[in-house]
């Protein structure tokens, strides 16, 4: 009798373990698979390439979404923040301003998107989903109007443009600048979200908005902060993006939205309460990036990659959610 009970708890805890670590297990399995399937996968050069080209920009957008999703909201307009920052920085540089002014202007543009979201959500009581959906539409129109229907703006070589492009090309102690930016932001957002009073307020609002309000948290102020931070982080990605490609391509930021949401929610499978975390989000971003890269190396074309990623995310989520449900 007692043995069978023990057996049962062992089974349940094994399921719980599998549910909790399904993403990590999948991650390890995928890394092993690609290492065997492709000789170039596990080389430092390739992993470095994945980090710089696939991870950094997506991870920064996903960090912002992690904060927003922790607060119980969503931001569909991150792509607009990316695009606006990219557009303003490239326009300023093309008009002959210095890199510093350009970067400041770009971040300012993202800040405006964030403030707009914050006003709509906290002052006008619009739900984050609808508010940011509206801003997404308006942002798309704005870009089309500003670029006569979506013409890209290219930076011709010049002092300011080269100086700006250097952001993407230079390295410090052998580490490329974008990676350093990412590391700094990861540490900052981790501390902010998991080690600070602000972070605790944000988590409380996400878990129990009513209780958070009754406990005296100034929900409106904190929520405004959350959306402004998210937009600013997306703005950083916008600047890195235009520094890398030396141009602004209208409506290109939206490509980050679905991947960033996916990465953040993949990360939530790490915690029992399904709370987003910085570590989990990074893991989600790495998973997506490695699968994309691995499928490319194994010789799948771009179109099949998308199917592969969809199937993989589906399976990971099914395993995590399904096993947890079975464990209950």
């Amino acid at each position: 009798m007692s043995v069978s009970a023990n057996d049962n708890t062992a089974k349940v805890s094994l399921r719980g373990f599998l549910a909790k670590y399904s993403v990590l297990i999948a991650f390890a399995a995928i890394v092993i698979f690609f290492s065997v399937a492709s000789p170039t996968f596990l080389t430092p050069a390739n992993l470095f390439n994945v980090l710089v080209n696939n991870v950094v920009m997506l991870a920064i957008v996903a960090l912002g979404l992690t904060i927003v999703i922790s607060s119980g909201g969503i931001d569909l307009s991150v792509g607009v923040s990316v695009d606006m920052a990219s557009m303003v920085v490239v326009m300023l540089l093309a008009a002959g301003y210095s890199g510093v002014v350009g970067v400041a202007g770009g971040l300012g543009a993202a800040l405006i998107v964030g403030i707009l979201n914050a006003i709509l959500i906290t002052r006008l009581n619009i739900s984050p989903f609808l508010a940011t959906l509206g801003v997404l539409f308006i942002g798309q129109s704005t870009q089309q109007l500003a670029t006569s229907g979506g013409q890209p703006i290219y930076l011709t070589s010049g002092y300011a443009a080269d100086q700006f492009n250097a952001i993407a090309r230079t390295a410090l102690f052998g580490i490329p600048t974008p990676v350093i930016v990412l590391i700094v932001l990861v540490v900052a957002v981790h501390v902010l979200l998991h080690r600070s009073v602000f972070g605790r307020y944000v988590q409380a609002m996400g878990a129990q908005p009513g209780v958070a309000w009754y406990s005296g948290i100034r929900v409106q102020r904190e929520l405004s902060m959350v959306h402004v931070l998210c937009a600013l982080l997306a703005g950083v990605t916008g600047i890195l993006l235009s520094a890398t490609v030396k141009s602004y391509v209208p409506l290109s930021g939206n490509a980050f939205l679905l991947d960033a949401i996916g990465a953040t929610f993949i990360g939530t499978t790490l915690s029992r309460e399904r709370k987003p975390s910085v570590i989990g989000t990074l893991l989600g971003v790495l998973l997506l990036a490695i699968v994309k890269n691995g499928l490319l190396l194994v010789g799948w074309n771009f179109y099949w990659q998308q199917v592969g990623i969809g199937v993989l995310v589906f399976l990971v989520l099914a395993a995590s959610f399904g096993l947890r449900r079975a464990a209950h």
Binding site: G262, F265, G310, F314, L317, R325
Partner: peptide, 27 residues
Amino acid sequence: LAVVGFGILPLLATLAVLNVAAGMELT
């Protein structure tokens, strides 16, 4: 299956399926 069978959040489940469907169209 994803939403009812596995209990995945609809937002997330349909996001994954979006990728599958869009990729299959492209292929």
